[in-house]
């Protein structure tokens, strides 16, 4: 188990280190997300999308915050992916992630 976590930690660090071009985009989605199920549906759609590094969904704020690798995907692709499952997106913010 110890070794497993070590491998996990190395993997996480190496992913973070190799990613130079990380951005975080925040979308407001239509229709509204109502419950854990909507959240799950969106997460299930996005989690295997190429370039997606982190997903943060807030039902309270009705936002989907995505961290992505700009070398592999862009906001258009991400918003199209959400459109496939019936969610229209409005981009609120798209900023480069500062990795120090």
């Amino acid at each position: 188990m110890k070794r497993l976590f070590l491998i996990m930690a190395i993997l996480t660090v190496s992913i973070a280190a190799s990613a130079r071009d990380l951005y975080t985009v925040t979308y407001k989605v239509q229709p509204q997300m109502h419950c854990e199920n909507c959240k799950k549906k969106i997460k299930d759609q996005l989690k295997f999308e190429k370039g997606v590094r982190a997903i943060n969904i807030s039902i309270k704020e009705q936002t989907v915050k995505l961290t992505y690798d700009a070398d592999k995907t862009d906001t258009q692709k991400l918003s199209e992916s959400l459109k496939k499952i019936g969610y229209k997106t409005t981009e609120i913010e798209n900023k480069k992630l500062n990795l120090k």
Partner: peptide
């Protein structure tokens, strides 16, 4: 039991 699911839910470890 210990169960770990990575943030993007790509990997799951259970013991």
């Amino acid at each position: 039991s210990l169960s770990y699911l990575t943030p993007l839910e790509h990997w799951q470890f259970d013991a």
